[in-house]
């Protein structure tokens, strides 16, 4: 065994996430519980997500990830506790978030009756931009996601990967400071999925977004998050780890094993 390496290893405690000094809280869960009848999907969960963070929420299917996501996006109200996003309540102040959050769903959810560029313009149409500005922005983002030449294609003529690129363009085009993604690449093949998540992480950082990225894949969480929150069922936090550049490959491997064990427990 290589003892020198053991000396350099970070302990799990070293990797535990702690809020950066003076960081502004963008999303706050305070003792949040969500029940569906007798089923407890989220149990007394507290979690702060800071402005500018790229957080991966990692958990097995059915552990309550989408339920958390729906409470952040305002589509669902918590049964108990408070969910605050940017200091407001997403469910009760639904319209306040116009232009402030954008979502990439698991399936592309493109309107079949709109061409790629018109799909990207959808979010912009709620923001009072002129038609020319809308088109310009939509084309910019389609181009940024490598869809030049497909602007006027209808969704049925695009591949699954291309459609998900259109839906990512649609989210970025609104220039919302908060991006929410619910397993956006899990329906794509491994190669397309890997390429898209790297691109996605780069775009989030370049554009200074806060992003919550839900996934059930450990690889994906590692590729994307600078913080990984591991959830057990019902949604409660099992591990909360920082993933900065100083974490060595050896440590990553070890953490990966720990996460595996935690998820399987």
């Amino acid at each position: 065994m290589n003892l020198a390496k053991v000396d350099n290893m970070l302990s799990l405690d070293d990797m535990r996430f702690s809020a950066p000094e003076g960081a502004e809280v963008e999303i706050a869960f305070q003792n949040v519980t969500k029940r569906f009848g007798d089923l407890v999907a989220v149990d007394d969960l507290s979690l702060d997500i800071h402005k500018g963070a790229l957080v991966a929420l990692l958990g097995k299917t059915g552990c309550g990830k989408s339920t958390m996501f729906n409470m952040i996006s305002g589509l669902m109200a918590p049964t108990d506790g408070r969910v605050e996003v940017m200091g407001h309540s997403p469910f009760r102040e639904f319209d306040w978030y116009r232009g402030k959050m954008a979502i990439v769903f698991q399936s592309d959810r493109l309107l079949p009756w709109r061409s790629a560029v018109k799909n990207v313009e959808l979010g912009l149409e709620t923001l009072g931009l002129s038609a020319a500005e809308r088109t310009e922005r939509a084309l910019y983002w389609l181009n940024a996601l490598g869809l030049k030449g497909h602007e006027n294609d209808y969704p049925h003529a695009l591949s699954g990967g291309m459609r998900q690129r259109v839906s990512i363009s649609r989210a970025f085009a609104t220039d919302a400071p908060l991006l929410l993604c619910d397993e956006p690449f899990s329906a794509l093949d491994e190669i397309t999925s890997r390429r898209l998540r790297t691109e996605f992480a780069r775009l989030v950082r370049e554009n200074n977004k806060t992003a919550v990225f839900i996934t059930h894949s450990i690889d994906e969480a590692f590729d994307i998050g600078d913080r990984i929150v591991v959830l057990k069922r019902p949604a409660e936090i099992a591990l909360d780890l920082r993933m900065s550049a100083d974490v060595s490959d050896v440590d990553r491997e070890r953490i990966r094993d720990t996460i595996h064990d935690t998820l399987d427990a």
């Binding site: 996006s73 589509l75 116009r98 954008a102 769903f105 399936s107 959810r109 979010g123 709620t126």
Partner: peptide, 20 residues
């Protein structure tokens, strides 16, 4: 799913009607 997606952009009632 499409309804939910359009709603997530917080459209006005009129926009929701004409776009979706």
């Amino acid at each position: 799913d499409l309804l939910e997606m359009v709603m997530s952009f917080r459209p006005s009632r009129w926009k929701f009607f004409t776009a979706m």
